[in-house]
Simulated assay, not measured.
Amino acid sequence: MRVVSQERVVRGGCAFFLRHATVDMAALAETLSVSRATLYRVVPGRDPLLGDVLWRFGGRMLARARAQTSSPGIEGVLETTRRFADGVRQAEAFVAFLRAEPATAARVLFTPAGDVHARVVRAQRDILAEAADPTWTPGDLDGAAFLYVRVIESALYAELLRGRPADPDTAERAARAVLEAC
């Protein structure tokens, strides 16, 4: 039996996802030169692995968006979001995954099955805390981050959730309203 680390599985899952816009556990096990049983000992299932893979990509996009943001306060939060959303929309493998496996994508992105939503909310909380300045003092960061992320998700994944394209202007007005209400 060959031993494989969770990090190696996630890295392998990322490479597989970029090539195939999905993760097939049997094919991934073969790529990693381990049995499926070994793979499942390292990761509890496909959804958690997809969550790790999507968060790895999303977290990097978010970090890049944050580093490129030049505006302070609420404008900076919105600028980071615009940059992140642009990156997500341009990620070919991710867009192909959303179209090919909408039910899996929704489960992994929005429920504890993939834990992506919870990670995004934690990251958004950090963004809100960092963006706070003397003119803007957000109160309940956890609640604001949750609402803000839900507004952004509803726009970013409008085709997945509603079957029609998003209206970015309306989404930004709603996101701004959440931030201003803090």
Rank of each mutant, 00 (worst) to 15 (best):
Y40H: 10
D47T: 02
D140N: 07
A67L: 08
Y148C: 10
V149I: 05
L39P: 11
M1P: 07
E7H: 04
R56E: 05
A29S: 06
Y40S: 04
R64M: 08
A113N: 00
A106I: 03
R11L: 05
S35E: 09
V4I: 13
V151R: 01
R64F: 06
G87E: 09
V120Y: 01
R125G: 14
S71G: 12
R119S: 10
R36A: 07
D24W: 05
D86T: 07
R150P: 09
P134T: 14
V3S: 09
R122N: 09
E159T: 14
L54P: 00
L18Q: 11
R46N: 05
C182W: 14
R41G: 00
M25K: 02
A26N: 08
P134W: 15
A166Y: 05
G73C: 07
V34P: 04
S154W: 03
H117S: 09
M1I: 13
S71R: 13
A144P: 14
P112N: 02
A177D: 09
V34F: 01
F146R: 12
G76Q: 07
V4F: 01
A155G: 06
L18A: 12
V116E: 04
G139R: 14
R66H: 01
S154L: 05
A118Q: 06
G87L: 05
F84V: 03
P102A: 06
R60F: 05
P112C: 09
Q6R: 13
R41Y: 00
A145Y: 05
R122M: 14
F57A: 12
S71F: 03
P48E: 02
Y157E: 00
R176T: 10
T80E: 02
V120F: 02
L160V: 11
L62R: 12
